[in-house]
Amino acid sequence: MFSLGNFLTLSTFGESHGIAYGGIITNFPAGLKVDFDEVQKQLDRRKPGQSSIVTQRKESDTVKFLSGIFEGKTTGTPIGFIIENENQKSKDYGHLENTFRPSHADFTYDQKFGFRDYRGGGRSSARETVNWVVAGSLAKQLLPENVEINAYVSSVGEIFCEKPYQDLDFSKTDSNEVRCPDSETAEKMISKIKEIRKEGNTIGGTITCVIKNLPAGIGEPVFGKLQAELAKAMMNINAAKGFEYGSGFCGAKMTGKEHNDLFNKDFSTKTNLSGGIQGGISNGMDIYFRVAFKPVATILRPQESFDKDGNPVILEGKGRHDPCVLPRAVPIVENLAAFVLADLFLINQLRKI
């Protein structure tokens, strides 16, 4: 299960401390002039070492396209690409060869495969998401130009951005380290993350994503519902723990009279508790969803655990790790959303042929 998508698909390979990450995108239409600068811009937003509140691993994360693009345009054949790893420090993980870290995939990978790459988690590393950003940034170029996808950090721990997304200026999202467009809330979030980092600890939170101007009719009525495809993509992100769209869990407290989105004459709706999706299909209103992320499992503090033989050990994280995954996860959420939308958009076009 190393692929994403239904018609437009991404298959990936690589490990955190291997030679490179990479992927193959199939069924990408021919003739698209690729904006390579935009692809690299999205990778730069995700890469490590970009601020004081993320991991200090230094990687240029420069993508190299190997196939499927000729003279700057897609050819319709599989698009192959790689991103070389440049700054591995595998020695930081030598003490984990026969030990299982709490809340990591060490034990489950060992049970599933009987063998694991313990360097940085191997295949389970969040560095895998570099592939998703490449694919998503290409896929977004297939969507109508007016489709906007904006994600932002909406909470860190108990600190919430209380403003509704309609009152936020998304052009300010990247103006601060934590990627929250409300500057006052962002300052509080940054201070909290720095405080947690000094303690050798980590912290979680939420990311909200807003999709504007998606045409009505995108998504499938049974399997392949738009919200289900978005949820599946988001829940594959390392550390993701929850997904809600529209009214989400708050909608469970309401009556039908309170929750129903009544129509205007042009078939827009007076409210949007549906989150832009009804019956699994976009209705032309804003699509908005929220993803919850747990604290990063690697903490720089002693923890009790066991080795493979059941002997008790004391583990303490070493190396370079994010105290909070949220700032670097914002472009991951945006680009995964773009890939999902492009996949369903192409399926919709095929149905009309």
Score class of each variant (00 low, 15 high):
residue 335 N to I: 11
residue 239 A to M: 05
residue 207 I to G: 00
residue 166 Q to L: 07
residue 87 N to Q: 08
residue 86 E to R: 10
residue 228 A to K: 11
residue 207 I to N: 01
residue 281 I to L: 10
residue 133 V to M: 07
residue 7 F to T: 04
residue 142 L to I: 13
residue 70 F to R: 13
residue 176 N to I: 06
residue 262 L to S: 10
residue 250 C to E: 08
residue 153 V to Y: 01
residue 228 A to M: 13
residue 91 K to T: 11
residue 228 A to G: 05
residue 85 N to K: 07
residue 341 L to R: 06
residue 330 V to P: 02
residue 286 D to L: 06
residue 206 T to R: 15
residue 99 T to R: 11
residue 227 Q to K: 12
residue 348 N to F: 10
residue 153 V to Q: 01
residue 339 F to I: 10
residue 167 D to R: 06
residue 101 R to T: 07
residue 310 G to D: 09
residue 323 P to M: 05
residue 243 F to V: 08
residue 178 V to K: 04
residue 29 P to W: 15
residue 103 S to L: 09
residue 193 I to H: 00
residue 345 F to V: 11
residue 224 G to F: 12
residue 15 E to G: 02
residue 343 D to M: 06
residue 200 G to T: 15
residue 67 S to P: 04
residue 6 N to G: 03
residue 239 A to R: 06
residue 208 T to R: 03
residue 59 E to P: 08
residue 292 A to S: 13
residue 217 G to S: 07
residue 202 T to H: 11
residue 329 A to C: 13
residue 115 F to A: 03
residue 328 R to N: 05
residue 113 F to S: 03
residue 180 C to Q: 04
residue 86 E to T: 09
residue 296 V to M: 03
residue 321 H to I: 15
residue 40 Q to I: 11
residue 330 V to Y: 02
residue 112 K to A: 12
residue 285 M to V: 05
residue 2 F to Q: 05
residue 18 G to C: 10
residue 137 S to R: 06
residue 236 N to Y: 12
residue 72 G to N: 13
residue 321 H to G: 03
residue 7 F to M: 06
residue 270 K to C: 08
residue 168 L to Q: 03
residue 1 M to Y: 10
residue 311 N to S: 13
residue 56 Q to M: 14
residue 205 G to F: 03
residue 27 N to H: 15
residue 66 L to I: 14
residue 47 K to C: 05
residue 40 Q to L: 09
residue 319 G to P: 00
residue 114 G to Y: 12
residue 69 I to W: 07
residue 44 D to Y: 05
residue 260 N to Q: 14
residue 183 S to A: 13
residue 272 N to E: 04
residue 137 S to F: 14
residue 299 I to E: 00
residue 37 D to W: 08
residue 272 N to T: 14
residue 283 N to S: 04
residue 266 D to A: 09
residue 293 F to Q: 05
residue 240 A to I: 11
residue 223 F to Y: 15
residue 258 E to W: 14
residue 28 F to D: 00
residue 40 Q to H: 10
